[in-house]
């Protein structure tokens, strides 16, 4: 597979390390009332769609960016690649 890196252009997927569902960005608040439940769902109940999947890849043999790749799990077609830090900020993550 080839991942079009938003900064570096097309790169072979072998340069990357895969993590999984991009919802791993949305780490719950540890002080929430249902923190245990929320952390359980966050870590263990991820999206596993047959179709478009937003997922995290780390450019380990490259610039060390974490990317959010939108990829179809039926065809492996990649339709969007974003810097994970941008996605994280857009989800309200900060410090």
């Amino acid at each position: 597979m080839i991942i079009p890196h938003p900064l570096l252009g097309p790169r072979d997927a072998q340069e990357f390390t895969y993590l999984g569902d991009a919802s791993l960005i949305n780490r719950p608040d540890w002080q929430s009332e249902n923190a245990m439940q929320e952390f359980h769902d966050y870590l263990y109940l991820r999206d596993n769609p047959a179709g478009l999947h937003r997922e995290l890849w780390f450019h380990e043999q490259g610039d060390r960016s974490w990317l959010v790749v939108t990829r179809n799990t039926m065809t492996h077609e990649i339709t969007q690649v974003e810097l994970a830090s941008d996605v994280a900020r857009s989800h309200g993550r900060s410090r």
Partner: peptide
Amino acid sequence: YNSYAQRGNLP
């Protein structure tokens, strides 16, 4: 990587 494609790649 997550996949339902029933095929893999060369690496």
